[in-house]
């Protein structure tokens, strides 16, 4: 079944292999994420990633593309996204020009002459389907929950069969099934029909040891003691009632900011100066400042 999925040679031998390869690219994954990526590749199914903001959903797709050494095609979703921006669009201006030119040259022009691939503008999904290369591309459909429900229906043919039908031209089917990663922040409930077509993985906020490991890799200049105490601090303030609990991305920003100040341990002044990297609202700022006295 993996062969019919389109992968000519298995890119990875197993979940551990994926983890090792992503590890080399400084992207650390847990067992679950590694298994999810592996099955998405080996079964040729789209993967739906959910999780809190800043937990590394988008980065997972980027790292996967780098590990596979293929281009990453990204489709950022927003409300009002239509087929014209996601799948394909005809180049109407060029068609109009062709008509004018044909008139000037006294040529005869048919419908079929206007709807050829010359006049077709590829958008991310069609681009992924028509990609030619030794490895299929990674298509990242980012924050699918931001698009409206009408858009989900547009995706079904592509997610199910990896093909796109253009009425004027016919159906394009991918030579090799693209690796599709969808991410969602759960701001809207996705339709069951979409979920059915995807494998699902929920990325949890990493455990403290893994956070330390990730920080060591991403902020190489940071002091070991600083990383440990920052991890501990973030772990504790995540338990508070915050508007926006700091995710992995914020933690990395924060430790980078602290280490650029030359901090070797958590000092109240340094924390206050770099608070803007972790506290993203005024209320959170107050809560964290109030908590600082007890924590450090």
């Amino acid at each position: 079944m993996a062969e019919s999925g389109g992968l000519t040679s298995p890119a990875f031998t197993g979940a551990d292999d994926i983890r090792r390869r992503l590890d080399e690219l400084d992207y650390l994954v847990d067992d679950g994420t590694a298994a999810a990526l592996f099955f998405a590749l080996s079964l040729g199914r789209p993967l739906l990633l959910e999780g809190e903001p800043g937990v590394g959903k988008t980065t997972a797709a980027k790292a996967l593309a780098r590990a596979l050494a293929t281009p990453l095609i990204r489709l950022q979703c927003y409300e009002g996204l239509t087929a014209g921006e996601a799948l394909y669009e005809w180049n109407y201006q060029r068609q109009m020009l062709a008509i004018r030119l044909a008139e000037a040259r006294h040529d005869r022009l048919n419908d079929a002459d206007l709807f050829t691939e010359d006049f077709l503008q590829e958008r991310p999904i069609l681009q992924a389907v028509r990609h030619r290369g030794p490895q299929p591309p990674v298509l990242l459909i980012d924050e699918i929950d931001r698009a409206d429900d009408e858009f989900e229906a547009l995706l079904f043919e592509f997610l199910g069969e990896a093909s796109i039908t253009i009425p004027e031209l016919g159906t394009f089917t991918a030579e090799r099934r693209p690796v599709v990663v969808l991410t969602s922040n759960r701001s809207r409930d996705l339709h069951d029909a979409l979920r059915r077509r995807c494998l699902y993985h929920w990325i949890d906020f990493p455990a403290p040891e893994r956070v330390v490991e990730i920080l060591r890799r991403t902020v190489p200049g940071a002091n070991e003691a600083l990383i440990r105490s920052a991890t501990d601090f973030v772990g504790r303030i995540r338990r508070f009632d915050l508007d926006k609990a700091p995710g992995m991305a914020e933690t990395i920003d924060w430790v980078s900011a602290l280490s650029s100040l030359g901090a070797t341990e958590l000092v109240r002044e340094d924390v206050l100066r770099t608070l803007s990297t972790v506290a993203k609202t005024l209320d959170d700022r107050e809560v964290i400042t109030a908590a600082l006295d007890q924590l450090t």
Partner: peptide
């Protein structure tokens, strides 16, 4: 993990 990723949506 195999079961959770494939069976839960």
């Amino acid at each position: 993990w195999t079961a959770r990723i494939t069976l839960v949506r």
